[in-house]
Amino acid sequence: MKFLTTNFVRCAIKSCDGAVNSFPLKYSEIELVQEEQDFQPEFILGILPRLDWPAILKVAADLGNTSLPSQLPEIDINDPSNEILLKDLHTLLIETQLVQGKMICENCNHVYHIKDSIPNFLLPPHLAN
């Protein structure tokens, strides 16, 4: 799963619906791969306003990256130097993939597993909503 997706998935259990700490999940024992993907600047530009930057920082730190800027830099599409910034975001959000590991809800402590790049959100019967 792409790093991008960590900025949107949350705990699936109903009692965590309104809980602020059910997002982002905590990522642990994660195995990463970098995989080259088509660069779509218009997608990055479109998704920027929807990103939760503090959640990006938190998950990046879970994965051992603490060198991201503390705030999402302003992007002016008419400025060519922004191409570099968009490419960096592309590398982080789209090309960085989580292939194995655990995702933990910090509200209910439920552990979800990632296997072969696929996060498993199936719930055991007693937690099914």
């Binding site: 799963m1 792409k2 991008l4 997706t5 949107f8 998935v9 949350r10 705990c11 699936a12 109903k14 790049s117 696929i118 996060p119 498993n120 959100f121 199936l122 719930l123 099914a128 909503n129």
Partner: peptide, 13 residues
């Protein structure tokens, strides 16, 4: 991206 999930338990986004 692919998620293994039962949509009857909700959309976890």
């Amino acid at each position: 991206d692919l998620l293994l999930a039962d949509i009857g338990n909700g959309i976890p986004f």
